[in-house]
């Protein structure tokens, strides 16, 4: 579990950005690679493809380290977003449509200590809120993040009606959003 280490992982990414530090990369790889592989296996039970997703994701971490902002995302969340996008590229053979970056003056955040602390707090708060969700909601929410599956596929897999899957995910998201605003 991340509590003690999250700040360290952020620091490793910053070291890669600033010094192209291969040792920092190795440390990061040893922690994240087996989790990324586990993530890949949830969408497709193909170990060779899962190893490719690990390579694609970690090489992207190396390349994009300069764009990582510790005040905007925790290390684990940032690596999740890269891994999610690479999974879409690899499995669907398409690039994910992304929003244009914000213009100057819009969406400004300074990478201060306070912000990094807020990012860690938001991570812990999100995890706590997820653990408080009724398990029927938490289960489908996790499936939607883990398995690259639209609601229809989750419905087929669980045997639940599509409307039930949709409403459980909607309730879970609403609870999280509300909880994160407090």
């Amino acid at each position: 579990m991340m509590d003690h280490d999250e700040a360290d992982y952020s620091a490793l990414i910053v070291q890669i950005a600033e010094k192209r530090d291969r040792n920092a990369f190795a440390t990061l790889f040893r922690h994240f690679a087996p989790r990324i592989k586990g993530f890949a296996l949830k969408s497709a039970p193909d170990p060779a493809m899962a190893d490719e997703l690990v390579q694609d994701t970690m090489l992207a971490v190396w390349r994009a380290a300069q764009t990582y902002d510790p005040a905007r995302a925790s290390a684990t969340t940032w690596i999740f977003t890269i891994c999610r996008n690479k999974r879409i590229d690899l499995f669907r053979r398409r690039n994910r449509p992304e929003a244009d970056p914000p213009e100057e003056g819009d969406w400004v955040m300074q990478p201060t200590q306070e912000n990094s602390a807020e990012i860690s707090a938001a991570f812990r708060r999100t995890r706590a809120l997820m653990n408080e969700l009724p398990s029927e909601q938490a289960d489908v929410l996790r499936m939607s993040f883990l398995e690259d599956k639209p609601h229809r596929a989750i419905a087929a897999e669980t045997g639940l009606p599509l409307g039930t899957v949709k409403s459980r995910i909607r309730l879970a998201l609403a609870t999280l959003r509300q909880g994160l605003e407090q």
Binding site: M58, T76, W78, I79, F80
Partner: peptide, 27 residues
């Protein structure tokens, strides 16, 4: 904000079996 859910989910996953050192060398 909602991407943090993905971070939590990734963090909770048990590490999968793999030859980490060989894959690290490849990377």
């Amino acid at each position: 904000k909602l991407e943090v859910i993905g971070g939590v989910v990734l963090d909770e996953l048990p590490p999968a079996a793999m030859d980490t050192e060989a894959e690290l060398d490849r990377a």
